[in-house]
Amino acid sequence: MTKTERAAWIADELQRLFPQPKIPLDHKDPYTLLVAVLLSAQCTDVRVNQVTPLLFARADNPADMARVPVEEIQAIIRPCGLAPAKAKGISGLSKIIMEKHRGEVPRTLEELEALPGVGHKTASVVMVQAFGQPAFPVDTHIHRLAQRWELSSGKNVVQTERDLKRLFPEEKWHDLHLQIIYYGREVCPARGCDGLRCPVCQTCFPDRKRPRKRKPA
């Protein structure tokens, strides 16, 4: 297969396996999604979903969250790790949303990335999942599989994102980034497949003899 053929086959196979992928973070609107994605940095989605009900019971909108002391936010989200930085980010972005965006989560990447604690991946998730705008968030699963499937040289997540956007049609980005994540967790995890064992790896690279080592993002 050429790279283009391989990408098309992978997209079709992932659509067959995960026809209606749901974002794994519990949320009810763009604001709660933004906070949940921020909390998910270096933390499992399961843990985030255990913590957010407690946090959102205290404040589930930027107006209320802006009034919650940072120390209280930090105490609630401690199980997610990196609590001091994340608490400052949640408090800070809530205040800016109220002061500069009339209480609404901004709808551009540039404005989202300007919020405290919000990086490119977090902003991209909100753009595609909350607002339906074209974006292709790249996490560790996507970065790893893009290397294993030789869809990107994968020197960093920025390059991986750029390469995947070129390979896949824009209308597939919304579902595809989630489908790759689910496949990476359930079928081709970091320690469960080295590029030789899972069905996609075996089908796309039947002659591959050596494991594919992941390059750090």
Rank of each mutant, 00 (worst) to 15 (best):
R102D: 15
R102Q: 11
R102G: 07
G103M: 05
E104T: 13
E104V: 15
P106F: 14
T108A: 13
T108K: 14
L109D: 07
L112A: 07
E113K: 15
L115E: 00
L115N: 11
P116Y: 03
P116H: 06
P116I: 06
P116A: 10
V118Y: 00
V118R: 02
V118E: 04
V118P: 01
G119K: 09
H120F: 09
H120S: 10
H120D: 11
T122L: 07
A123H: 04
S124N: 15
S124T: 07
V128D: 13
Q129W: 06
A130K: 14
F131V: 15
P134Q: 06
P134A: 12
F136P: 01
F136I: 05
P137T: 09
V138Y: 04
D139T: 10
H141C: 09
H141R: 07
H141W: 08
H143C: 03
H143T: 05
R144H: 01
R144M: 02
R144D: 05
R144Q: 12
L145N: 02
Q147H: 04
Q147G: 09
E150M: 11
L151N: 04
S152W: 08
S152Y: 08
S152H: 12
S153L: 13
G154I: 10
G154L: 07
N156I: 06
N156G: 01
N156S: 00
V158N: 10
V158E: 10
V158P: 02
T160E: 11
E161P: 10
E161T: 09
D163T: 12
D163G: 14
L164R: 13
L164P: 11
K165Y: 04
K165T: 04
R166P: 00
R166K: 14
L167M: 07
F168G: 06
F168P: 04
P169L: 11
P169C: 11
E170G: 01
E170D: 00
E171P: 00
E171A: 00
K172R: 15
H174P: 03
H174G: 06
H174I: 06
H174V: 07
D175G: 07
L176H: 13
L176R: 04
H177A: 07
H177S: 09
L178V: 05
Q179N: 05
Q179G: 02
Y183A: 01
Y183K: 06
Y183D: 08
Y183E: 07
G184A: 11
R185Q: 14
E186D: 14
E186Q: 15
R191K: 12
G192V: 10
C193I: 07
C193V: 03
C193Q: 05
C193H: 05
D194E: 10
G195V: 02
L196H: 00
R197Y: 13
C198S: 10
V200S: 13
C201L: 00
C201W: 02
C201H: 03
C201F: 00
C201D: 02
Q202G: 08
T203C: 07
F205Y: 11
F205E: 00
D207L: 05
D207W: 02
D207T: 09
K209P: 03
R210E: 01
P211L: 01
R212I: 04
